[in-house]
């Protein structure tokens, strides 16, 4: 699997989601525009942003964005963390086969640290909660090597 953070990493997850529509069908529709924000830290020189569009049971778009493009991308929600925290989550998923109790999207984002879930409109941010099983499954696919 490609290194994180990279557009290739997210494209692999995208391909796996689209190849496993039955699994996602059982979880329900998805409908959102998301941005995954990876903050610069000791492991990453500059902030990086990845846009994703989820439609029905597919991820229909993955792209890398400049910071100045994020607002225009009009995400429903932005999931943001330092690079090291993203990497820890992904490493945990790879080691455990799926996120363990300490590394679920909800747990990581609940208190606003180490992850933060936010957006310009709380009701659009709520889509993240409403469809969370699907987004958790999206990331859990990182376990597949």
């Amino acid at each position: 699997m490609s290194d994180f953070p990279s557009v290739d990493f997210f494209r692999v997850l995208q391909r796996r989601m689209n190849d496993n529509s039955d699994k996602f069908r059982a979880l329900g529709f998805t409908d959102s525009r998301a941005v995954f924000a990876v903050r610069a830290d000791d492991e990453l020189e500059d902030d990086r942003y990845f846009g994703a569009v989820f439609e029905v049971y597919d991820c229909t778009e993955i792209c890398e964005l400049e910071a100045s493009e994020v607002e225009a991308y009009d995400p429903d929600w932005i999931l943001e963390a330092d690079c090291a925290d993203w990497r820890e989550m992904i490493a945990n998923i790879r080691a455990e086969g799926a996120a363990d109790s300490d590394h679920t999207l909800n747990r990581l984002s609940l208190l606003g640290h180490p992850f933060r879930i936010h957006g310009v409109d709380q009701t659009r941010v709520d889509v993240f909660h409403r469809q969370q099983l699907s987004y958790q499954e999206f990331f859990d696919q990182a376990a597949e090597g």
Partner: peptide, 14 residues
């Protein structure tokens, strides 16, 4: 369990 119920609840709040 909580992940599933929170999905539903977020819908009602919305």
């Amino acid at each position: 369990m909580f992940r599933r119920v929170l999905q539903d609840e977020a819908r009602h709040v919305s």
